[in-house]
Design a protein around this nucleic acid. Structure first.
Lengths: 335, 335
DNA sequence: CTGAAAGCGCTAACAC
DNA sequence: GTGTTAGCGCTTTCAG
């Protein structure tokens, strides 16, 4: 359990004693303040080294009334998309001295509120949350935190402060338009628990709006009752293909599901007459032996931009511009 | 930027004033201490509500000399395996009131050390790190942190305190044995930058040990110079198949690469005479239209067990037993 | 360039 | 049941 279980870690004061200066001087030297003589700094650094001193952020943050923390709340880790957003945040924060603290909401509004409250109790200097559909009380809590709130992924709604993402409604619309333009007419839908994944629901709604404009509709659909996965997509697609053998296109809640659909299509030898369309532009989708259509969502970039906004917040209070950063996903894999 | 930008958040003291009691009483009431009269508690809760009070963990932790933080350091988020470990940790921590703080090492020992130092400055009550191969100075830092150090994923080495994982050397050996038992003889290898992914390197070494026992060796191999991905696996497999057309089995650094290999095999119509073998047992691998071999690593479970150890540490100092939790991956997809 | 005093918001340990 | 006192380890502010 370490060399020194139960032995308090050295404090500034002890380093100061060892270096023969006051703790203020040590504090300054360690933070690289300009007004410390080189020799003093030298002695302080040596003492720090010898004692294995590690600063105490709790004391630092409490005393200085600011933290280097960015709270991040995402719904899940089971879909590679959110880890990629986190990776983007991590990159965007690099070199800023800021730390990301993550929490999972599990696509559950109550849980999200509790997680957010927990995170706020660490007094982060910014908070990044997923989506724009937080319930009233959560929004109130976020507002009164008096820190920048950065809502990511989704653009369809009213942001609290900053908003970085794309319109999922439009993404669904555009995909439908592109598929119809490419001659597809007999559409099916495969998704998973839509009331949990609000953004997938918005894409579906957008898709359906355009279908309606063209006097079309989903001929058949299958909605799973677990979270999206390749396996679920494959299973539901097999089912749907059995029920509706003459579809020429299936829209999926996301790429994981669509990849499963592509596998089902391969197994059913339907790769030539039916096109699977997903959302995200996963690396995996591009490597597939069959083509699928998808919208490339800039999830790493969303993370990076969000992180940049969070960094800014540590310096100034409010960047005056760029409250909303909108991305337009590129559609690939059609034609 | 919130309703009250720049306005200090309410403190215990203010809640106390509003409720007409001392801050100690508020503190006790909020923490659910037994010795507070129901009416007082009621008034305190009301005041808390009205003021929108959110506790300050910085002050709490500094004052009480303990945090509810578990530091977690993983190499990457780009491979679904680590997010899944994090999800497992998240589940394992649920209901304990503990928070996970994540950091990324990017498969870089220097960066890992810096990240660990940063995390330690928050005085977490336990730290979970990936692997057993930290350099000397990092180990020293971890030891002197005087908190439980939980090393996960890997078992091949000497743990600092707790160790939860599997032997990657043995995993490689077992896979080689199983493949040879199934009649495979002409092996190839496809991997990516092994000096970064130490565990993949251990699996490969184990695999080669068994090959040698059987007077066999890799006939051909391809090592990519980027991180593992489906795309890279596919590309390298195409290359390898061109160079060595009569392989009957390819071992991959992991399932992502192996899935790419499977795609390449499908494209080259080599699905019947060659078997791809990976590692992890990704959900994706099971859904594939062709069979691949893999070892199922219990990554969620590793996260959960690690989290449980971390929880224990908050209560007692040292759980006396179970310092090492060893998992044996199940091999699937052969025969 | 360096130091001393005060205090960040909370809890531990004791009084009452 | 409730209040008081004394810190936790650091920074801020003001003196020298």
């Amino acid at each position: 359990m370490g060399d020194s279980l139960g032995i308090r870690k050295p404090t500034l004061e002890e380093v100061a004693a060892a270096a023969g200066v006051s703790k203020m001087t040590v504090s300054r030297a360690l933070r690289g303040a300009p007004d410390v003589s080189p020799e003093t700094r030298e002695r302080v650094l040596k003492a720090t080294e010898q004692l294995g001193y590690v600063g105490n952020q709790l004391a630092l943050s409490l005393s200085s009334q600011r933290t280097n923390l960015v709270a991040v709340v995402v719904p899940s880790m089971s879909n590679i998309v959110f880890p990629e957003v986190l990776a983007g945040i991590s990159v965007g924060l690099e070199g800023s001295g800021m730390q990301a603290v993550f929490g999972l909401s599990d696509y559950d509004a109550r849980k999200e509120r509790d997680v957010i409250r927990d995170m706020l109790s660490w007094r982060p200097s910014a908070i990044i949350v997923t989506g724009l559909d937080q319930p009233e009380d959560t929004v109130k809590m976020l507002r009164s935190a008096a820190i920048p709130v950065i809502q990511i992924m989704d653009l369809d709604g009213t942001p609290i402060d900053f908003n970085v993402g794309l319109s999922h409604g439009k993404a669904g619309e555009e995909m439908a338009r592109a598929l119809i333009a490419a001659g597809r007419r007999r559409f099916g839908y495969v998704g998973s628990v839509l009331e949990r994944d609000l953004r997938a629901a918005k894409r579906k709604a957008g898709f359906e709006r355009v279908l309606l404009e063209h006097r079309l509709a989903f001929i058949g659909q299958r909605i799973g009752d677990t979270l999206s996965s390749v396996c679920l997509g494959k299973y539901l697609t097999h089912e749907l293909l059995r029920a509706e053998p003459n579809l020429d296109c299936i829209y999926y809640s996301n790429d994981d599901m669509a990849v499963g659909g592509a596998f089902a299509g391969m197994e059913a030898s339907r790769t030539d007459d039916i096109l699977m369309a997903g959302f995200n532009g996963l690396e995996l989708a591009a490597a597939l032996p069959v083509r699928i259509a998808t919208s490339k969502s800039p999830r790493r970039m969303i993370g990076e931009v969000a992180a940049r906004l969070a960094r800014g917040s540590m310096v100034t209070g409010v960047p005056s511009s760029g409250k909303i950063t909108a991305f337009v996903p590129e559609i690939i894999g059609i034609e």
